[in-house]
Computed example of a mutant assay.
Amino acid sequence: MNRMHLRIGPNDRAAAAGADHADGSNAARGAAQVGIGLRQPHYREWAERRVALGFVEVHSENFFADGGAALAALENVRETHAVSLHGVGLALGSAVGIDAWHLERLARLVERIEPVRVSDHACFARAPFVKASSRPAQATVFHAADLLPIAFTPASLDILCTNVDQVQERLRRSVLVENLSAYLSFNDAEQMPEPVFFSELVRRTGCSLLLDVNNLVVNAINAQRDGLASADPVALACAFIDALPPGAVGEFHLAGYCDTGSLVIDDHGSRVHAPVWAVYEHALARFGALPSLIEWDTDVPSLDVLLDEAGRAACRQNALPAPRAAA
C-alpha cells in the first residue's frame, strides 16, 4: 500500500514541538500523535488560530459533496494539519456487501484530501427487505442510521474480510477498523472471543485496528452489571488489549460515556473518564505511542476543552519510556 506524504510546514512542526499543556508540562513528544475530532462549531475558530496538534479527524460522509463550505474548510485545514477520515456508513459487516456509490464517494474524497488514515466500523447497517405486497417479490436494501453489532463467528468474519478487502482494493491503501460499543450479544455456538475475531481480521486482510478504548470500557462495565463478567471492568478491558497481537493497532480513540445507572452509553458527550484513561495507559504500554484521538460528538464544548483533553493524552504518551537507541 502506498502511504501519502503529509503537507505540514516547518512552522507547524515548530509550533507542535513547543506546545505546552495547561498544567505547564511540555507535551512536545506526544503532540504529533494526538488529535481531536474537528466539528462544524469550531471551523471559524480553527481557521483563526494556529493550533499545535498532530492531526484532526472528520466524518467522511460530511464531505462527500463535490464543493461547498464544508469541503472548503476541510481543504484549508489540510494545508497545515494531517487529516484522518473516519466513516460511519460503509457498514463493513453487512452480508449484502458495500454500497458502490458510497465507496466511490469515499474514494474521491481520499484522492482529494490525501488523509493520513481512513477508518470505519466493524458493524452492519445494510440489509435486504422484501415487501410482502410486491409481486413478484423484490428485495430492497435498506440502510439503518446506526452502527449495529455483528456476531463474532467465522461466517461474520468471512463477510467482514471480503468487504474490507474490497474497500482496500478500491482505495489502494490499508484501512483501520473500529471495535464497537454493543448493547446486545449473540447466542451462537460458533461465537469467537472478540480479540481473536479482530486478530484474524488483521491477519487475513492486512488492515489495522482502530482500538476505541472507551468502547472497551463501556462494554466491560455493562457486562459486569449484566452478570456476564465478574472481573473489574478495567482489568477486563486490559485483558482484551493483551489478547491482541503486536502491531495490530494503528490508532486509539478516547471519549466520554454516559452512566445512566443501569446502562453505560457511549455518547461521546463528556471528558474522558478515569477508567478509560487507565486502560489507555495500559494500551500505550503494550502498543506504544500510537496516534490517539479525542472524540466529542454531543454537547460539543469549546475548542480549548478539546485541546486540554488532547494535552492529557499527550502527557500520558510522554510518560512512556523513551525508545532505546539501537546498539
Rank of each mutant, 00 (worst) to 15 (best):
E48Q: 14
N76V: 06
A73I: 01
E61H: 01
F63K: 03
P41W: 13
F55E: 00
A52D: 14
S25P: 00
G67S: 14
A31G: 11
R29E: 15
A70R: 15
F63M: 07
Q40F: 15
R29S: 15
H21R: 11
D66I: 00
E45H: 07
D66Y: 05
G37C: 03
E57A: 12
A27W: 09
V34C: 10
A22D: 14
G30K: 05
F64E: 00
A72C: 05
D20G: 06
E75L: 09
T80G: 08
D20Y: 10
H81K: 05
A72L: 04
L53P: 13
H21M: 12
S60D: 08
N26K: 10
A28T: 10
A52H: 14
E75V: 03
A28W: 11
G68T: 12
E57W: 07
L71F: 04
A32L: 15
H42V: 03
F55Y: 14
D23K: 05
L71R: 14
A70D: 15
G67F: 03
V34K: 06
G67L: 04
W46P: 05
H59I: 12
L38D: 01
D66C: 02
E61R: 02
A70C: 01
L71S: 02
E61S: 02
V58C: 01
G24D: 08
V51Y: 06
N76S: 05
R49K: 15
A72E: 15
R78H: 05
E57R: 03
A69K: 03
L53W: 11
A28P: 07
F55K: 01
E79H: 06
G24Q: 10
A47S: 14
G68D: 13
R49G: 00
N62S: 12
E79S: 08
V58D: 00
F55D: 01
V77G: 00
A73V: 04
N62E: 07
R29T: 15
D23V: 11
A22T: 14
R44L: 14
R44C: 00
R29Q: 15
R78G: 07
L53T: 08
G30H: 07
T80E: 09
A32F: 15
V34T: 13
E75N: 04
A72M: 09
D66E: 09
E75F: 03
A52T: 08
W46K: 02
